Amino acid sequence: MPTFRDLATAAYCPRQLYYRRRDDETPEVPDSVAMRRELAYEYPRLLADADLDDEPIAVTATQYRSALHRAKARSEAWESLVDPADRDVLLEGRDCRGVAHKILEEPVAPSLLFTGEPPDTGVWQPQSVRLVAAALALSYERERPIDIAFAEYPAHGVVRRVSLSAHRRAGYRSTLRTVRSIDGPPSRVRNRTKCETCDYRDSCGVRTRSLGSLL
């Protein structure tokens, strides 16, 4: 059964998932990522008098607190996000499985933590697929409809409410079909900028160019 991570990887680049499966690799969580994730369980302290200069945030202290204040004011689930019913829960869905970093009860929804930079609005496509997967898996376990999930970017103080729209569900189903169909190297992605930081770019045979050469 594919994992949430498998689906997110395939949404970004199916070929990358192929190589990861071929080498039977399970990426380890770097210490820097673990430290940033922990911020998501410290929001009240970070909003108060914590010295943010000592925290692994990705923006200035002023920007960070402003973003957290906006998240608190706008989110109907703030209390649940601050004090989730459970954390790091393995969800077993009908089609995939994986870990939800937080399980909320008011409203009932999963929340996933992303340590990179958020887009200006919404969430990145691989993250969207992963959020839908988590929500559907929780829905399957609870035997009740769950139509939302939350994306947290704790290093930026940003929280996004994500609805399971028809468009997002379609993207999830398309990615799930892709994952199930992989039995050899898929076609290379057209957006070669994705290849620049890929661990498999040498074995993949993709030649990357600098921004200067592209311009």
Rank of each mutant, 00 (worst) to 15 (best):
R37E: 14
D54G: 12
R45N: 08
A71Q: 09
A85T: 11
S80G: 13
V29L: 10
P56D: 01
A73I: 04
E28Y: 04
Y43E: 01
G98Q: 06
L112Q: 01
A67Y: 06
S32K: 13
V108M: 09
S32E: 15
H101W: 02
E79L: 12
D53K: 11
K72T: 09
A85E: 07
S32A: 13
L113D: 01
L90A: 13
S75W: 01
T60W: 08
E28I: 10
A67H: 08
P27E: 08
A58R: 14
L52W: 04
M35A: 15
D53W: 07
E105H: 13
S66M: 11
A48N: 06
A34W: 04
R37M: 11
T26N: 07
Y43H: 03
D51P: 07
E42K: 14
V33Y: 04
T60R: 08
A40Y: 00
A67D: 06
A58T: 09
R45M: 12
C96Q: 14
P30M: 01
A50T: 11
L90I: 11
I103K: 03
A48I: 03
H69Y: 10
D88C: 11
V89S: 03
R45I: 08
R36F: 01
L113A: 02
P110R: 09
S32W: 12
D24F: 08
D95S: 12
E92R: 13
D54H: 09
V82K: 00
E28Q: 09
D51Q: 06
L90M: 12
Y64W: 06
I57N: 10
I57M: 10
W78T: 02
E28A: 14
A50R: 04
A77F: 00
D54T: 15
E105T: 15
L68D: 08
D86T: 09
E76W: 09
S66D: 15
R97S: 15
R36V: 05
A48F: 03
R45Y: 07
V29R: 08
V82S: 01
Y64Q: 07
D31S: 07
V108K: 06
D53C: 11
P44F: 10
L90N: 08
D31A: 08
T60S: 15
S32P: 06
K72L: 11
S80Q: 06
D24S: 12
R70D: 13
P30R: 01
R37H: 12
E92C: 10
A77L: 01
I57C: 09
L39R: 02
L81A: 02
L90G: 10
L90P: 05
L81C: 03
A48Q: 05
